[in-house]
């Protein structure tokens, strides 16, 4: 049988919280059982045409920015969305893989409502753009946005890897403690709180990173290959994070006294 497939029948009436639709939890359930599950006031069957499956694999056909919390809290399995998703996709995701073949809303891979920690494992790939605060307070895992991301990407990041192949909004990496933010669009100066750092001469780590990213997104892998700058911050916080930047002109190396 394979994957569970949910086809969006009509636009959702209002924002729906889809966190309950976990691939591993749906595997082996009958179409009827899935259709009867509730999403707040509506049943899954009211919104989606359900075809059951036995694999920990869920496909959402058709997307909408009103589909919130897609893959939120997911621990295993794979979830593929053939369309857009709303806010809080992959929020608090702990394992498994989410791919969105469309745009994602705010707080992609961020902290689930009522939680203090962003995604803490797994792989998230968004083929389109993401909203504000992608990767907010992320602790572990890999989050790739092949398009653009909004402001405060990787804000408050604790660890992990966020790659934005397109442009980013204001204040990327703000309050970043540790972790890596990869920016695919050439930038010229580090954001406030970051200083110009150095790439390791041997590039060993970039080789590992490129290989890992390429396996998920060749486009992101190519961005690593083009990395020329490394910025360190956020010095307002712990300051052990890095922003890796492709191309562009860096400002001169920050001179420290002594």
């Amino acid at each position: 049988m394979g994957a569970v497939v949910l086809r969006l029948k009509a636009p959702p009436p209002w924002p729906l919280d889809l966190a309950a639709l976990q691939p591993a939890a749906l595997a082996g359930k009958s179409a009827d059982e899935i259709a009867r599950m509730t999403l707040g006031r509506v049943a899954v069957g009211d919104v989606f045409a359900v075809s059951a499956g036995d694999a920990a694999e869920l496909v959402l056909q058709g997307g909408s920015p009103l589909l919130d919390c897609v893959g939120a809290g997911m621990q295993s399995g794979t979830l593929l969305v053939e369309g857009a998703v709303g806010a809080l996709a992959a929020a608090g995701l702990r394992g498994g893989r989410l791919e969105v073949r469309g745009d994602a809303g705010d707080h992609l891979g961020g902290a689930a409502p009522d939680s203090r920690m962003g995604m803490s494992g797994g792989v998230v790939l968004v083929r389109g753009n993401a909203g504000a605060r992608a990767g907010d307070r992320m602790r572990r895992g890999l989050l790739i946005v092949e398009g653009d991301a909004g402001p405060e990407a990787a804000g408050g990041m604790i660890a992990g890897t966020v790659a934005v192949c397109g442009a980013v909004g204001a204040a990327p990496g703000v309050l970043m403690r540790r972790g890596t933010l990869l920016l695919g669009t050439p930038a010229v100066a580090p954001p406030p709180g970051f200083i110009v750092g150095r790439l390791a001469g041997d590039g060993t780590f970039l080789r590992l990173l490129a290989r890992a990213l390429h396996a998920v997104s060749p486009r992101a892998g190519e961005c690593v290959a083009a990395v020329q700058h490394r910025w360190l911050g956020d010095l307002a916080a712990l300051g052990k994070g890095e922003i890796l930047v492709t191309g562009g002109q860096a400002i001169p190396q920050h001179q420290r006294s002594g």
Partner: peptide, 17 residues
């Protein structure tokens, strides 16, 4: 403000920003 406060914090930690 958030950005300015960030810089203020870095300065308060005696970091060279």
């Amino acid at each position: 403000l958030a950005v300015r406060l960030g810089l203020l914090r870095a300065l308060a930690k005696r970091r060279e920003v």
